[in-house]
Amino acid sequence: MNTVAVIGFAQSGHSLTTSGVETLVPVIRDALEDAGLAKQEVGFWCSGSSDYLAGRAFSFVNAVDAIGAVPPISESHVEMDAAWALYEAYVKILAGEAETALVYGFGKASAGELSRVLALQMDPYTAAPLWPDAVSVAALQARLGLEAGLFTERDMATVAARDQGGDVEAMLGRPYLSDPLRAHDVARVKDGAAAVVLAAGERARVQRERPAWISGFAHRVDPQGLGERDLTTVPSAIAAGHDAELDGDLDLVALHAPFTHQELLLRAALGLPAEKIIPSDGNAMFSAGLSRIGVAAEQVMSGRANRVAGHATSGPALQQNLVCVLSSGEA
């Protein structure tokens, strides 16, 4: 079976049009340049995005314009964060069906009403018709964690202060947005795009002196019903971490936590110390998870770290979790 490595990464913190095309053109170009690959050398393309976010059907087909699909390409898409598209491309290369792949995610959350859009990922019979907004759903989870004594509002503000700057005391004096969440507990939702380039063993060594080798990669999902889950634990993250052989032997970890309390829950579930977390600068819908893996991989490719992990989440209240462990040494 092939070994697989990340050999290129690029991201953008803004988005011009809801189609994503104009945003993706420079991101794809920069990721390919980082990987030293020409567009024609990409064996498989895979993307993550959402029609509900874009407000149009088959928006991902429109986005293929950014690639320039002549001659025809091999392409696929997931209606999820592009970290899951990365998993699909990883499996494709593992199976020997492609030697290289470019994975991209994009979204313009500011075009629509994000908290309503995200209600549509909940149970379509008993939950979505009530239009629960995403911040309130997260607040229900945060309260359960607080009242179980797993963390404090101060712990939450400390996470926000690391990522956004600011004084913890002053932050705790601010009013609640959705009690017990304050504005700083909600990651700044950004428009954006990201692209990661993968290559199989031999090819990765040719393209790059220090590829970030994927030593473990797994994703899991918890039940759909919010009330079916113990929201103070993250079984799907624990299971994914186990399958990806995530352990304490890591230099750095990039977590995808849209809310401060979710980073605290993830750190506890995965046994990660605070000082190993790579700060985050926002939550770009449908590309943030892929970006976190790209940011982690960059640490290995640049020689700043030897063993890192990237994490992505999707769904309400950390329902789905993905863990990717990357290392400087080929497995």
């Binding site: 008993t126 939950a127 009530l130 629960p132 907004d133 911040v135 309130s136 759903v137 607040a139 229900l140 989870q141 309260r143 359960l144 009242e147 009013p175 609640y176 947005l177 959705s178 009690d179 017990p180 969440l181 019903g225 919010l226 009330g227 079916e228 929201l231």
Partner: peptide, 27 residues
């Protein structure tokens, strides 16, 4: 079991475990 209220809204959200049930209903 858990609740939240957003400033300026006319209702809040809760997870409620009805008597006789083992799981919670979001409403």
């Amino acid at each position: 079991l858990s609740w939240t209220w957003t400033e300026g809204q006319s209702s809040g959200w809760a997870l409620v475990r009805l008597d006789g049930a083992d799981t919670a209903l979001l409403h």
